[in-house]
């Protein structure tokens, strides 16, 4: 579905407007809290998709960068004596940069492998970092760490976090959009389709893959920092959480792997549902059943994800009236049947 530029601009403007006014309309602490978590996951899914969706390398270890962001912000805030308040948000970009720096060696090692081996290595990294967080001295081990807690009123607390995360989300979206339309993005897609052939056409695949990997780790590290600050505490099992990896991958798959808005849509639906269920039924992890069911539905009915399937539907509907579109083998078969 290629929307015309004015339609696209209108859509983006509407989305940004909704993003801006949402917490003012749904202002209860419950809904704004759900909104903050949802935005965090929208950033993570969007950034993950920029790498994994474009290159076809399904990384399942981005929790490493989420956790490193969380610990970076907490440790720096505590050790540099940041007063609780707006000042701590200045550490969010630092959390992103540290996550990006950690993505360089981990990415270098993982990206030496292809496909399945790559996936396994990224998972292994996630557990190594979780284990390290449990056992290193400066992370506080299993008792975790507490960043300073800002003394904002209940209403403004969520609002402040909401708008900071919204800004990070906008920046991440602009980044993925830039990458998508760039030569760099085209090279990533060519790697997804046939890496060997891309090399044969002069694409410096090692450099392209690693830089996309690092680029995607930075926003994840930033929201990791926001997450720690928002919760007011951080533990190894939540900072480096295998469910985080599965969640962002699922969000991207459900929305449409490799599409611009698919992962945002997936995160919007899944994370808000999960938070809603947690609020309603306690943290029983019952949401995992919903996750599974939803994933099954998507795999069975919309195997390429919501956005690509919708695009196909719309383009088919548009192609319907004039004459049989050449892109519909099914229809020509039907016509042949009819003639017989």
């Amino acid at each position: 579905m290629r929307l015309r530029p004015p339609a696209r601009a209108l859509l983006v403007a509407t989305a940004v407007a909704i993003l801006g006014v949402f917490p003012l309309i749904f202002s209860s602490p419950t809904s704004t809290s759900i909104a903050v978590f949802t935005l965090i996951f929208m950033v993570a899914a969007c950034a993950w998709n920029m790498f994994a969706g474009s290159s076809g390398y399904i990384a399942l270890g981005h929790a490493v960068y989420f956790g490193c962001g969380a610990y970076t912000l907490t440790l720096l805030a505590n050790h540099l004596g940041f007063a609780a308040g707006w000042g701590v948000f200045a550490l969010v970009p630092v959390a992103g940069i540290v996550a990006g720096l950690i993505a360089v060696p981990t990415g270098l090692i993982a990206l030496r492998a292809r496909r399945h081996t790559f996936v396994v290595i990224t998972i292994a990294f996630m557990f190594i970092f979780q284990l390290a967080a449990f056992n290193l001295g400066f992370t506080g081990g299993s008792s975790g760490l507490q960043p300073p807690t800002p003394l904002w009123s209940v209403d403004t607390y969520n609002l402040n976090f909401y708008y900071v995360t919204a800004v990070v989300l906008l920046a991440t979206f602009v980044l993925t959009w830039l990458v998508r339309r760039s030569r760099f993005g085209l090279q990533l897609l060519s790697i997804r389709d046939d890496e060997e052939r891309a090399r044969g056409l002069g694409v410096r695949v090692a450099r392209v893959k690693l830089s996309a990997f690092v680029l995607s780790a930075i926003p994840v590290g930033m929201v990791g920092g926001i997450y720690a600050y928002f919760l007011g505490q951080i533990f190894p099992q939540f900072a480096f959480d295998p469910l985080f990896d599965l969640s962002i991958a699922l969000m991207a798959f459900i929305g449409g792997l490799g599409t611009l808005v698919g992962p945002l849509l997936g995160a919007l639906v899944l994370e808000s549902l999960q938070q809603y269920f947690t609020v309603q039924y306690g943290s029983s992890q019952a949401y995992l059943i919903i996750y599974g069911a939803l994933f099954l539905v998507v795999v069975l009915l919309l195997p390429r994800g919501v956005i690509p399937s919708l695009e196909e539907l719309i383009s088919r509907a548009r192609a319907e009236p004039p004459e049989q579109g050449p892109e519909e083998p099914g229809r020509t078969a039907d016509t042949i049947e009819a003639v017989r």
């Binding site: 830039l178 760039s182 085209l186 090279q187 060519s190 389709d193 052939r197 056409l201 450099r207 830089s211």
Partner: peptide, 28 residues
């Protein structure tokens, strides 16, 4: 690159020796 269009297939090979940042910022 079977999922790219014919034209996109052609454009993959057009890289010049440009810096990384330019390759991200410039439209393919």
């Amino acid at each position: 690159f079977f999922r790219l269009t014919v034209l996109e297939n052609m454009l993959v090979a057009t890289q010049r020796h440009e810096g990384w940042l330019r390759s991200v910022l410039r439209v393919a």
